[in-house]
């Protein structure tokens, strides 16, 4: 399938807010409330059986946190990227752990690194950082003992 066919099939289920083609891979942005619907649709009907990763991008100028789901199909060898934009001050989204079990650790890492809250997560503990630390991958992260790199 090329990206237009995947896009047409996604459009039968949910309406993407925005989409683009990047290196032959479809990037589709959907509403946060549609995420479980579109992921389970991709898994069950379009045979995207492999969740490569979940990560996020911080956009301070737009006050957005963008969650990225990268899916791959071992059957049709297709790739697709689903993007969701959340409010930066209170980022909250449903977990997809009940669809892809591997999303559990990816969501825990995204949660601690970007301060995103995943609702109904089965084990919402920190994975890599210590308790009490802010989200370190946000652009405005401050830490007491952080030494900034000296500029030449």
């Amino acid at each position: 399938m090329n990206y237009q066919e995947i896009l047409e099939k996604i459009k039968t289920k949910v309406e993407p807010i925005y989409y683009k083609e990047d290196l032959g891979v479809l990037n589709a942005e959907v509403k946060p409330s549609d995420i479980k619907k579109v992921i389970s649709f991709l898994k069950d009907e379009l045979k995207f059986d492999w969740l490569n990763f979940i990560t996020a991008i911080d956009w301070p100028e737009n006050q957005n946190i963008e969650i990225i789901y990268y899916l791959y199909s071992n059957i049709t060898k297709d790739k697709v990227v689903i993007r969701v934009k959340l409010d930066r001050n209170n980022p909250t989204i449903d977990t997809i752990t009940d669809i892809f079990k591997t999303a559990e650790w990816h969501e825990r890492e995204t949660a601690e690194m970007f301060g995103v809250k995943f609702l109904n997560h089965p084990y919402p503990k920190r994975l890599l950082t210590i308790d009490g630390m802010d989200a370190p991958l946000r652009k405005d992260f401050k830490c007491d003992d952080l030494k900034p790199l000296p500029k030449d």
Partner: peptide
């Protein structure tokens, strides 16, 4: 040492 949030110095 620089720009690290996770390492003990």
């Amino acid at each position: 040492v620089y720009d690290s949030y996770s390492v003990v110095y």
